[in-house]
């Protein structure tokens, strides 16, 4: 079975039947990756927002100012924690599932069967999954920020009354278009790279079923390193461009 052609990015479908199958697999993958991750993501975002706001509010109150909470939420929650923790959820829940699913498909002869039917497995298997992973992590990041803001509001209220409208107003005032571009680029890049890497590792299995947990394990480790590396690299590029201002 030749998987060398994997390297070519011909993932997108060409005619109606291919598009319908692509869309069906894409929606299924979004359901598994995004919708099923929402409860876990909600808890993580709520606690992350709560802790960030509580710490920032405490620190700022010691220094005698609290109007910077929105800015800190953007720097910590929006730029760093949301992409990082969404990426972590994506890797632990979906990249592992994707790698083991593809590895099992290869062992079971499903990839070969698709090829024999003239079905391009890159279009049918990889394309929809990689696109779904990319779209899902962007949605997960946005969802994380929204729930994180709720958590932040709860955390900010530990130290006296803090209206939700004020938090949102501060957050919206501090949010720059470049932040949004950075956020979207960062989350989408992580999703794309993680899913592509997981797929590639999943398909790298040769023939034996005992290799499935091995490639899954490898996928987790390599995806974690890739995700961390991308986080650092993209943040570095971003702060080099705009300069550090806290």
């Amino acid at each position: 079975m030749k998987v060398a052609a994997f390297e070519r990015f011909t993932f997108l479908p060409k005619d109606r039947g291919q598009r319908e199958e692509f869309f069906r697999v894409f929606l299924k993958q979004v359901y598994f990756t995004y919708f099923q991750a929402m409860p876990l993501l909600s808890i993580m975002a709520l606690f992350a927002g709560l802790m960030v706001a509580a710490q920032v509010k405490l620190g700022l109150s010691l220094m005698g100012g609290s109007s910077k909470l929105g800015h800190f939420l953007i720097v910590i929650l929006f730029r760093e924690l949301a992409p990082f923790l969404s990426g972590l959820v994506l890797i632990t829940r979906s990249a592992t599932a994707c790698a083991s699913e593809l590895a099992t498909m290869k062992v079971q002869g499903e990839v070969e069967a698709l090829e024999a039917m003239g079905i391009d497995f890159r279009q049918y298997i990889l394309g929809p999954r990689i696109l779904a992973g990319t779209v899902s992590i962007v949605c997960m990041g946005i969802y994380f920020v929204l729930i994180g803001l709720l958590g932040a509001w709860t955390g900010a209220n530990f130290f006296g009354h803090y209206p939700f409208s004020e938090l949102i107003s501060q957050f919206a005032t501090e949010l720059e278009p470049l932040d949004i571009v950075f956020f979207l680029t960062k989350t989408a890049t992580i999703g794309l790279v993680v899913f592509r890497l997981a797929s590639k590792i999943g398909l790298s299995l040769n023939r034996a079923p005992f290799e499935v947990p091995i490639v899954t394990n490898r996928a987790v480790v390599e995806c974690l390193f890739a995700s961390l590396g991308l986080q650092l690299f993209l943040s570095l590029v971003f702060y080099l461009l705009i300069g550090v201002s806290v």
């Binding site: 002869g109 070969e112 069967a113 003239g118």
Partner: peptide, 23 residues
């Protein structure tokens, strides 16, 4: 790849036991 996608539908292949998509 493009040629293979036109070539393969001329053949109906049934393997011995594997090849059904489990999902």
């Amino acid at each position: 790849n493009e040629v293979l996608q036109k070539w393969r539908p001329y053949f109906g292949f049934a393997s011995r036991e594997k090849g059904l998509l489990s999902n």
